[in-house]
């Protein structure tokens, strides 16, 4: 899932200065799962904003709404009846969702309430870690299902660097050395032959270096 983190409260209130009636728009996708931008978080943030503005003697009216997903035009369309009645939209989706809302409603200020942080998953409830860097050329076959691009701090492709100590990375004793994990796993799979193969220098064109990316399913094009 795409993981996001709520922006500092002061930054959000700063963006909303001068607005009297806004919509706080949640997203039912990834950010609901990572507990930062779903129905509940919309209610919490709206409640906080109302209280902060009341406290400052400058009340704000808030419409609370959460759609299935903000990264699909048909769901963004669902709020078309509400948008004309508000001064601004505060989107609690990831960066993609915010842009879909902004694109659909020209002339309407759309602000992000979250900082989109990474693609990852949970290790336990409320604890999320990065697992994928969307490099566009998956190497997990060669590395025992552990990603060296996202999980090695240097994105090394052919074994660990000298900063690997007792299975941990030199950047932080809490962070596992991805290459230690890969080696342990390849050993347990009895596939150390994969480690013997040299991986070529990475072609970063499939990553962001090739500019904005797209994916098209031909059979869905009309």
């Amino acid at each position: 899932m795409v993981v996001g983190e709520r922006k500092p409260f002061d930054e959000i209130t700063g963006m909303l200065e001068g607005h009297k009636k806004i919509m706080v728009l949640g997203c039912g996708g990834c950010v609901t799962v990572c507990l930062t931008g779903g129905h509940d978080e919309v209610r919490v943030l709206s409640s906080q904003l109302r209280m902060a503005r009341d406290n400052a003697g400058n009340p704000i009216e808030i419409v609370e709404k959460t759609v299935e997903r903000q990264c699909d035009p048909e769901y963004v369309e669902e709020v078309s009846g509400i948008v004309p009645d508000v001064d601004a939209v505060l989107s609690m989706a990831c960066g993609a969702g915010v842009q879909y809302v902004a694109e659909r409603y020209p002339g309407m200020p759309v602000y992000p309430a979250l900082d989109t942080t990474f693609v990852g998953g949970s290790t336990k409830e409320g604890y999320y870690v990065e697992k994928c860097q969307t490099c566009g050329a998956c190497k997990l076959f060669y590395t025992g299902g552990i990603c060296p691009i996202a999980r090695c701090s240097k994105s090394l492709l052919n074994g660990p660097c000298g900063g690997s100590t007792k299975g941990k990375c030199e950047i932080d004793p809490e962070v596992d050395c991805a290459w230690q994990l890969i080696l342990d796993r390849l050993k347990s799979l009895n596939r150390m032959d994969l480690y013997e193969e040299n991986m070529a220098v990475n072609d970063w064109r499939t990553n962001r270096d090739g500019g904005p990316r797209k994916m098209i399913r031909e059979d869905f094009q009309r």
């Binding site: 509940d40 209610r43 919490v44 409640s47 906080q48 109302r50 209280m51």
Partner: peptide
């Protein structure tokens, strides 16, 4: 209990 309940009480 969720933060929503507690915040609404204050609100």
């Amino acid at each position: 209990i969720t933060p929503v309940f507690l915040l609404r009480a204050f609100e």
